[in-house]
């Protein structure tokens, strides 16, 4: 989203505004590729031992908290079971994913994307405001006109949650799978309470990402997919017309 304007030159509904910066657009489409690759190859890796445990250890003789049958080939990468290939895909795209979020976070602090667009404002945090936003979402009443220039509180909360909690959690729990990293950074193992706990949390966060993706796609479809996708490709977004116009 662009810089704030004074009230008198706030653009009206129907005008084209520059909504997403280049860094946001690049990062967004990088994630489309990396997240899809990581999720599907991750399921391929999971298939090698489709059981999850809590704690430091866990193998066939131990009690899992979750035991699944293998994920089917249409959702795994590669389509036919190959732990080695799934790992090659996963570990290559993990590098891109991790360094992309690192640079995006740093750049978003520098260009003030975080402080301008993502940081919660005091008035947004009042229970009344949050409740009103929940009701608006439930009724599918999306902001119009200049109000659509800003992320609403639920949007902010989900983006902040994804950028600062979900993705770092995925990366750190993923790193905890690495015996080399465990030796170098033992605090990683302590952070998650053991390598098998980290593997469980990695799995849970992966599905939380899918949950975010589904809601995200639903919102894009409901808010007008052409306008939304154009804004994420070109940066230009047509502000929705005020209701009643």
């Amino acid at each position: 989203m662009t810089a704030e304007r004074s009230t008198d030159d706030r653009p009206a509904g129907g005008t084209l505004v520059k909504r997403h910066r280049l860094s946001t657009r690049l990062w967004h489409w990088t994630n489309v590729v990396t997240v899809a690759t990581l999720f599907t190859s991750g399921l391929g890796i999971f298939n090698a031992h489709p059981r999850l445990y809590w704690g430091h250890f866990g193998a066939n003789a131990d009690t899992p908290w979750l035991e699944l049958s293998r994920f089917p080939g249409w959702i795994t990468l590669p389509g036919s079971y190959s732990l080695a290939m799934s790992r090659h895909w996963h570990l290559t795209f993990a590098l891109i994913f991790a360094f992309a979020i690192l640079f995006y976070m740093l750049w978003s602090l520098v260009n003030r994307h975080v402080s301008r667009d993502l940081a919660f404002r005091r008035e947004e945090l009042s229970p009344g405001h949050i409740w009103a936003d929940i009701k608006d979402h439930a009724r599918l009443r999306f902001p119009t006109g200049a109000a659509a220039l800003r992320y609403n509180i639920l949007q902010k909360a989900s983006y902040v949650g994804v950028i600062f909690v979900l993705i770092p959690g995925l990366i750190l729990s993923g790193l905890t799978m690495s015996p080399g990293m465990n030796a170098a950074w033992p605090w990683l193992v302590d952070l998650f309470g053991g390598r098998q706990s980290a593997r469980s949390i990695h799995f849970i966060l992966a599905f939380a990402t899918v949950g975010f993706f589904l809601v995200h796609i639903l919102m894009v479809v409901l808010a007008g997919p052409f306008n939304e996708i154009r804004s994420m490709v070109t940066g230009w977004y047509r502000l929705p017309k005020e209701r009643g116009q």
């Binding site: 031992h49 430091h56 250890f57 732990l83 790992r87 390598r195």
Partner: peptide, 10 residues
């Protein structure tokens, strides 16, 4: 801790 490539640990 022994970590198998398959994901389990002992």
């Amino acid at each position: 801790r022994h970590d198998c490539v398959e994901g389990w640990s002992a």
